[in-house]
């Protein structure tokens, strides 16, 4: 639309420029702080010309927080959540959309409810489940009397124990157990024309063949979008990894940041802290920049 609005255009540019500065300033400030030595970083105001200690600071932060193995952990963790989500929610959405089995509505609603309660609010009991993932099943056996029955018959006391603390499954599985991706796929599957199913049936393709040869290739865009946002979401998780990984060698990069906070009254090594922050935020920033299209698409589609 062509409209002569010189003043409004000026205001637009000004407001957007301020927005840009506010959005970028923290990144720039962190990056500059990471190049200073201990003295310069604590000057007020901090010199805005980069110093010469960038590589040293990165190395110090890397060693102090043990970032090498922790970044690998983060990568496996975030990748695992992304893959798990993509696979499990595609399966579930397929079941909900393309089949009519008894209890389908119940399944739909029981998955829908999981959208409402984030992990953070049910953190304590979820932790207890992760400590012994077979606990729920043991409790069911106890309550239904199967445990005592087996004990009376064979003399063996059933005691199911399987801890997931300090393991990748323990990190990954509870985060896969939500509905986010399921509805993204469901919306998409519903737009697939009925004729597609009918044609496949006529050609003799069963449901499994139809899923792998037709539905999955058509969902490529959704898979990319979902994988991107789930990777970011998992990489940025904090509370759950903090609880589940009690041993430092299993911790993730994001939780490792805590060890870089300068202690009150200690040496204010903000240059090292900022170097660590930079290392931890860089992978997600790269994903956002490279996968921008899928990221935006995934966010908008998965929340509707």
């Amino acid at each position: 639309m062509i409209e002569r609005t010189p003043i409004l255009n000026l205001v637009t540019q000004l407001v957007l420029f301020v927005g840009l500065v506010v959005a970028l300033a923290p990144f720039v400030f962190v990056a500059i702080a990471a190049t200073h030595d201990l003295r310069d970083v604590n000057l007020v105001p901090m010199p805005l010309l980069p110093g010469h200690n960038f590589i040293d600071n990165l190395a110090t932060a890397w060693h102090r927080a043990g970032l090498g193995p922790k970044l690998v952990n983060s990568l496996i963790f975030a990748g695992g959540v992304a893959i798990g989500k993509v696979v499990v929610s595609a399966f579930t959405a397929y079941a909900i959309v393309f089949f009519r089995f008894p209890g389908r509505q119940l399944l739909f609603w029981s998955i829908f409810v999981t959208l409402m309660l984030p992990l953070e609010v049910r953190i304590v009991p979820t932790y207890a489940v992760a400590a012994n993932v077979l606990g729920p099943y043991q409790a069911i056996l106890d309550i239904t009397g199967i445990t005592s029955l087996v004990e009376a018959l064979s003399g063996i006391r059933l005691d199911l124990q399987f801890g997931l603390l300090n393991s990748y499954p323990g990190l990954i599985l509870p985060l896969v157990a939500t509905a986010t991706g399921t509805f993204l796929y469901r919306q998409f599957f519903l737009t697939l024309p009925d004729e597609l199913v009918e044609a496949a049936k006529m050609d003799g393709a069963g449901p499994i063949r139809f899923f792998f040869d037709i539905v999955l290739p058509l969902s490529r865009n959704n898979i990319a979008a979902l994988a991107t946002i789930m990777f970011l979401w998992a990489w940025n998780q904090y509370l759950w990894p903090l609880l589940v990984t009690t041993e430092p060698e299993h911790a993730t990069a994001v939780t490792a940041l805590k060890s870089l906070i300068p202690n009150e009254g200690g040496i204010p090594e903000w240059n090292v802290a900022m170097a660590g922050t930079l290392i931890v935020m860089l992978p997600t920033l790269i994903v956002v920049i490279v996968m921008q299209r899928w990221f935006v698409r995934g966010l908008i589609a998965s929340e509707k």
């Binding site: 927005g19 840009l20 959005a23 970028l24 923290p26 990144f27 400030f29 962190v30 970011l232 990489w235 940025n236 904090y238 994001v254 939780t255 940041l257 805590k258 870089l260 906070i261 802290a273 900022m274 660590g276 922050t277 931890v280 935020m281 997600t284 920033l285 994903v287 956002v288 920049i289 921008q292 990221f295 935006v296």
Partner: peptide, 16 residues
Amino acid sequence: VLIWPYGIAAPALGLA
């Protein structure tokens, strides 16, 4: 550029 901040982990931006 304006969507970059959302990609940052809450603890990382907390420390920043």
